[in-house]
Design a protein around this nucleic acid. Sequence first.
DNA 1: TTAGGGTTAG
Length: 604
Amino acid sequence: MRRNVAVSAIRLIRGRRFAAPWLHESGILSPPFSLFFSNFHSDRPSSPKVPTIDFSRIHALDDAIHLFHDMLRMRPQPSVRAYSKLMSVTVKMKHYSFALYMFDEMRLRGAPVDEYTMTIAINCYCLLKRVDFGFALLGIFFKSGYEPNVTTFSTLIKGQFLDDKVADTVKLFKKLLDFRICEPNDVMILTVIDGLCKAGQIIAARDLLCRLERTRWRPNVKAFNALLDGLCKGGLVDDAFQLLSKMIHNGISPDVFTYSSMIQGLCNVGRLKDVKDLLNEMANSNISLNVVTFNILIDALCKDGKVKEAEEVLGIMLQQNINPDIFIYTSLIDGYCLRGEINKAKQVFDSIVDGGLKPDIISYNSLINGYCKEGRVDEAWLLFLEVPCKGLEQNIRTYTTMIHGLFSKDRFNDGWKLFKDMEARQVHPDLHTYSTLLDGLCRNGETEEALLLLRMIEGKGVNPNIVTYGALINGLCKNGKLGVARDLFNQLPSRGLQPNVQIYTMIIGSLCEEGFMEEAKSLLVEMETRGCAPDIVTYNVIVRSLLKKNELHEAIPFLEEMPQRGFSVDPATFSMLIDQVQGQNEDDFLLKLMKIVLPKEIVS
DNA sequence: TTAGGGTTAG
């Protein structure tokens, strides 16, 4: 019964989603045996000898296909180990459905299979996100007289996590323990802890790890690292610190992975002082930084606009004979782009090849984004066109960045043409793409179309986020549709979203411009009570909106409040102020204004 | 011979 399930599962997969081009036998065109076999020509043909197969010569799917068909024709048959090895080499090349095809053929032709080949097959189903077929294969296990072992179950657990079946996985793990079906080992424990963390169940992972600590299956450093990484990624850095002391207290020495996760977590929340302490701790424990740790530091500095310091860290890394990888180059490119130093970014991009590496699609995307941000859209476009010439494929981010760049220069037709091209190439738009398109429509004054697009996005089951709504609210305000913008703004809580400071600022600015001062003031209070403090932009926008209407006196209370909040008047607001003040004849008023706007030392 | 942590982008 179970066998039938498994066989039909395989047929189903073969017949449907993974229709394979290798289903023909290798014929006269296949390479000679000697390509893969090192001692095929035996001295004594009368006593057939199983040749040694050189798996290191398999570099592509074609090699595996030819070798497999050669192996099937061999007499005597190669060992089950040889077949397992070929399957696992194929899996490493990520050709899961071919590995499954081999397994299927082996069984049909009576080639040997054992628990290893079956576990590899299960792994393939798991990696193809068909853990259900993996479970179905357990039937073949029992039918063949084999018992699934701890590796088989670990594989299935990983498969369930990949398939988002978190609750089922917890049940399975508990069952394995309760019924003593197998002893969990380090890999299984790590798989469960890591899977729970990646599924966002960090507290459950921590509870499990604590419970396991009191058993004979004590988690090792890797399991602790997985949990610690989960805590850091979830922003729970202080809990991670507690866990770190606990593991040290329990005699588990942290390693470079432990510290890398901690440093990443601290960088994410801007606790650079603690990063320094940890780096000292690493030095004291004789734990060297690796290329990833360096990248975390370099990336954090670049994101903070401190590219010079990032270059210094790079220098230390080079002194330690660690070569930069593509991640480090990309961090530096982003860092320079963020500062608007696009030519420096291009220099870093060009130096990737000098480092013996090739730019990947992410480094292209970063540079394309940099050129677009600087308004140098034509240069971005040339890079965009270069991508396929380098054997790479433009992905959703490449397209969205480029479309955004074109829209920002009001090249709406080109942007839409590119969007159509993207769809034709089966690159599927995501929320960022939709937000970009919405923003583009609004910039072009097509707010009706933007609202239609929003409905279409919602209809597709994609949940617009606050950025999407922000683009639309901004567009509506700028196109004089404050009423519609406010309706949308008021609907945000019912859609599970809280307006951010930018959205409040847009609405408040528009209310000021339209003369709804009381409403603007009450929204200003509201945002503060909701824990969304107005910022320097909010105040500048309010002042400018009032100045646009020549309401200088209305603006004064806001101008007076700005220094108290540590905000200054930005250049655009300042020049508007100067224009308005020229018409005033009241000396006292002017002095008052100067006291607000200019630094104290200049006024005195 | 099977299963195993961390880093990149609007």
